[in-house]
Design a protein around this nucleic acid. Structure first.
Lengths: 224, 224
DNA sequence: ATCCTGCCTGAGCTATCGCTGAGTATAAAC
DNA sequence: GTTTATACTCAGCGATAGCTCAGGCAGGAT
């Protein structure tokens, strides 16, 4: 389940995107200004951003710059109302991965979105690392030092979240949202249960703890 | 819980704001003149100020200037009765972050307030510093020199107050108000207890004291 | 059909945190 | 130097966040 953030001040655009992309199985967040977009991006970690160039207040190119400052890998698809090549070039040069000229058909946009995500998928590393811990997302096998660790799929997904956000506080709700689905009914106890299991596997031969509890806040992946 | 100070000589405006914003969960202070506004701001450190341009006595622009002199970061939302662009421009140029033209609907005002606070939030740094002390507000971990210090959430909130107001005298009532809620029943002893704990953690390996007692006045964060 | 593995739930347990209250120390005032 | 107000300290208690365990259920393998 992949997350897309759309940033556009025009509600007629965002509502279409929201409906269409949701129908295609994406989780869609809406921001109606550049600032709001940055805020949402910071706490939701979308897999892809659709960004309008022309907006009142902070303009698209500035938003793009800041998004990239936070995460250089994040795929960004620019929407440009003017088909003036200068703009498109400016956007692409500043780091947009692709652009679509308004007005566009949803089909075209969807194709670009899929292409970008595929490309990003292909480019993103199979193996995540932190300290002496590594996780091969292809084979779902983790390694602590030289020791191999088999993970179940939930364990894998959970550990992947930690490795994708090292040194960051991940609230239980965040993990629940990511690893289980966003409408998961149960309590956060399940997170605790799986964190315990993960710790057990990661520390089976007495290695130091990597997943730490921050009471009242969540968990963090960090050394010592 | 965020604090808003509204400065306006018109009671019909302030009463609406007070009621509406309180309902939205903000703590609202009211000042009916520029001078009173400055006084309250100095001792309450609001998170945002709503400021009328047209007031008898000290006018809004002057108040703005003085507010900014004390805290250049403080978000200020101007209320202007005339929609004359000159005024708005003058206000914004002198440092107001946004303005709303009277008459306004509460909805619009609320949206602006939220936007400003979010923006300010996003801009405020994750890591606060003072001397050899730093505090990561994300992970709630402090550092004294190279030494890491884990803090509980109350300890963190308390230390954050000191780091946000360095070299300033913070009365116990102020800290009580900020760290515990404004309607906290107990005595100020709790502040003493937590100051002690903080000192213990911050000076565990013999570092010089940073939080000093000013008998009868409060505590200060300062070196020496 | 049965066994096994993995996912999830619920209940009880534990440790930590936040707070209180009483007693002690210290500084200021007289 | 004594008194008084203010601040500090410490032990302990209650609440609760987080941990742990046992068990039920479902789906796939044997």
């Amino acid at each position: 389940m992949q997350r897309i953030l759309t940033i556009d001040d025009d509600p007629s655009v965002t509502s279409v995107l929201k409906r269409g992309l949701s129908y295609e199985g994406f989780v869609v967040d809406i921001a109606s200004s550049g600032q709001e977009g940055l805020d949402i991006a910071r706490e939701r970690y979308p897999d892809l951003v659709i960004l309008d160039v022309m907006m009142p207040g902070m303009d698209g190119l500035e938003v793009l710059r800041r998004l990239r400052a936070a995460d250089a890998q994040l795929p960004v698809l620019m929407l440009t109302a003017r088909d003036s090549p200068t703009d498109q070039v400016a956007g692409l040069e500043r780091g947009a991965d692709d652009y679509v000229v308004k007005p566009f058909t949803f089909e075209v946009l969807l194709a670009r979105v899929r292409a970008l995500l595929r490309r990003h998928e292909a480019e993103s590393p199979e193996v995540l690392r932190f300290g002496d811990l590594s996780l091969d997302t292809g084979t779902r096998r983790a390694q602590r030092g030289e020791r191999n660790i088999d993970l179940t799929s939930v364990e894998h997904d959970l550990l992947k979240q930690f490795l994708e956000h090292p040194e960051r506080v991940l609230p239980k709700e965040f993990l629940l949202d990511r690893v289980w689905s966003y409408d998961f009914g149960g309590s956060t106890n399940i997170v605790e249960v799986y964190v315990k299991q993960l710790r057990q596997k990661l520390e089976a031969t007495g290695e130091p703890r990597l997943i730490h509890t921050l009471r009242g806040a969540g968990y963090v992946l960090r050394e010592e």
